[in-house]
Computed example of a mutant assay.
Amino acid sequence: MEVSTTIDLKDLGRVHRLGFGAMRIVGDGVWGEPTDRGAAIAVVRRAVELGVDFIDTADSYGPNISEEILAEALHPYKDGLKIATKVGFTRTGPDVWVPVGRAEYLRQQTELSLRKLKVDSLDLLQLHRIDPKVDPEEQFTLLRDLQKEGKVKALGLSQVSVAQLEEAGKYFTVSTVQNRYNLTDRSSEDVLNYAEQNGIGFIPWAPISAGELAQPGGPLDEAAKRLGATTSQVALAWLLRRSPVMMPIPGTGSVKHLEENLGAAAVVLDDDTYAELEAAR
């Protein structure tokens, strides 16, 4: 089965479906400076050299540091390169994530992202989480206003339900949705189906997580051996075939792992292998 390598996103344009997630270019716990900033910059630059034209980051990665590294590595940006960022989490320490959806906070963080990324308008701004303590209307209205003001070109949401996607769609065009999805966690299947039916890009986070399926003798391991690929490459290839709106963004702080991940675009799953992985849980 032929798998399309690109997708046309609403309000954003066409990008390659296999992108790069910039969460892992900062310190442990997604906190602070990376151990080697030069290495992080090298990973980002290598991704673009290899044809990546969609990079996903967030103000909370570091916090701030991921966006700053992207600007240091890539600005002025190559024509066609799209950088997506997210707002809606504040950080108080390593691995601590606190949703904040007040309109003034989301606006403040958007302005800071514009400054850190050194752009006049963000390619794609995603609400990192809907804050349950703030009326969704306040959050969605603010995002709509930012787009009307030209501060962002396209808008998206992260870790949401179909009902929340439908509600947000009353305020603005939803270009992307970013939910956890992989071979062993398909709890967002309904959101993926909704995205496919409505032409919304679906960005699966933790795309390579496969647990026991990747263990020696497991279905992912066996498929990788048959195809002469790594288990990570096969997991990503399965995602790419699963839906034409799927946009995996595997992240890493290693050039070697980056090159391995991007090699998934060349892995072709035969029908039997795809069916085996589809049935595995």
Rank of each mutant, 00 (worst) to 15 (best):
T5I: 02
I7S: 02
D11S: 14
G21L: 04
V26Y: 12
W31A: 09
G32D: 13
D36Y: 09
V43I: 06
R46S: 09
R46I: 03
G51M: 12
G51A: 07
I65K: 15
S66L: 04
L74Y: 03
D79C: 00
I83N: 08
T92C: 05
V100W: 04
V100K: 14
A103E: 15
E104S: 13
Y105A: 10
V119I: 05
D120T: 10
Q126E: 11
D131A: 08
V134M: 11
V134S: 12
D145G: 00
D145M: 03
Q147D: 11
V152P: 11
G156F: 12
V160A: 06
E166M: 15
E167H: 13
A168S: 12
F172T: 06
T176F: 11
L183A: 12
T184Y: 03
S187M: 04
V191R: 03
A195F: 03
N198D: 07
I200Q: 06
A206K: 12
L213C: 06
A214K: 01
E222A: 13
A223M: 03
G228W: 01
V234T: 07
R241M: 07
R241P: 07
R242H: 13
P248V: 02
L258Y: 10
E259R: 02
V267T: 07
D270T: 04
A275W: 02
E278M: 11
